[in-house]
Design a protein around this nucleic acid. Sequence first.
DNA 1: TTTTGAGTTGTTCGA
DNA 2: GTCGAACAACTCAAA
Length: 474
Amino acid sequence: MKPIVVWFRRDLRTHDQAALYQAAKIGAPVIPLFVFDSDLIRRLPSDGAAFDFQAESLRELQKNIRSLGGTLIVRHGKAKTVHAEILREMSPAALYFNRDYEPSARTRDAEITKLYESHDVEVLTFKDSVLLEPEEVLTGEGKPYVVFTPYANAWKKLSKPLPFGNCPAFSTPRMKSEAILSADSLQREVAITSRDVFGGESEARKRWKTFLKNHLEAYQSGRDIPAVDGTSRMSPYLRFGCISVRHMLNDCYEVFARTTAGGKIGITKFVDELIWREFYQAVLFHFPQLVTSNYRKRFDEMPWKFSRRTFEAWKHGRTGYPLVDAGMRQLNQTGWMHNRVRMVVASFLTKDLMHDWKLGAEYFEQKLIDIETASNNGGWQWSAATGVDPKPLRIFNPRLQSERFDPEGTYIRRFVPELAQVPKKHIHAPHEMPLTLQKELGCVIGKHYPAPIVDHAAAAAEYKINFAALKKAE
DNA sequence: TTTTGAGTTGTTCGA
DNA sequence: GTCGAACAACTCAAA
């Protein structure tokens, strides 16, 4: 029997993996293929945490495929070149892969599909990374939703998670392949120093079980406090497909059926987050130009500022606003940032510093371990008010956010050690400490910790004026 | 076609 | 310090 090529991309698991399951079920030999795409290396830089996370996930995938009887084939190069080699060497019966809705991925997939079809090889694609695809959730008029709530309502009516279950065993034909997943070939110097989330299917399941047991039902209140481990931290696993979203939703519905009213609220809130993920994927699918442009055209005329000094201060957590600085340092050190703080730093960059959201989105692309273009873009456009949410002018007050969501300053002290000794009273605005206290604590503002680089009230007022001018210009 | 109700995550003010 | 109301705001989706 001719083999079936299963092309792995962002579905690095063997459990409940649509394309792999369907191929293995047939009983033909399977070539599980992963390509380190040289065109994508730029987008997933090899000195970033996401790249390491992917490598860890691949290592486990290799192990799990072996236990099913097969061998993971890993190759380097342009996707098209690698697939042309596979076609030549193995003359496969078919190519199977799971659909990816990101604009650049769709372009690539169309090209590869054409290549196989030009060799008369069948190409089958599957729904796998979402419960409902962009074209499955549309308004009464058949148009894409651009507001979350009606989208979520429609989604909830349509959705039914149906996992495939365990993958049947299969074999992989002998072929020449580079043995590249040896530990040392992936050992590199990385900037991220204290990552605490590691790739792979078993890690994903472990973390999910812990969240399910300890945090899901309290999600409503726990998720907003950055000092507390109340969020699921499943985003990188979803990004690389170390866990199936069908599987997660099934578990949620199961717990929902037997929990208290309060628990039900937490679960609903968490399921909403999974819907947000699919909403933003759908938005980007229908409006691919959003990767580089504003959804609200009005903002094309926004007089964004740029200052290297200011932007560097934001990037490295030296703005003089403790919660902003803590967030940016968490990102730089761990490759992850709490969602509440992502909103705070994004609002700060776009409203207080008046910098274009694209600069912030780009920096997140470099640093985040869970980087997902659709969610990142959606989040930044939401923060900048340029996106699909119709409510404009949501200016976060960084000090108020700090007082509200990190009242004791626990999170701030964890990531901004120079403020570790600052008492609760001053932790949200250390520049207001009397000079004698600053000296006593060894935390002199302007010396050990920066004074605020911008006045929030003045910046907010300026932003409002600019926004009003945009409206008038129309 | 027009109208109506509602919108992830806010902030400020004054009691 | 806490709380509710006012603020400012305009687009979208469905009736």
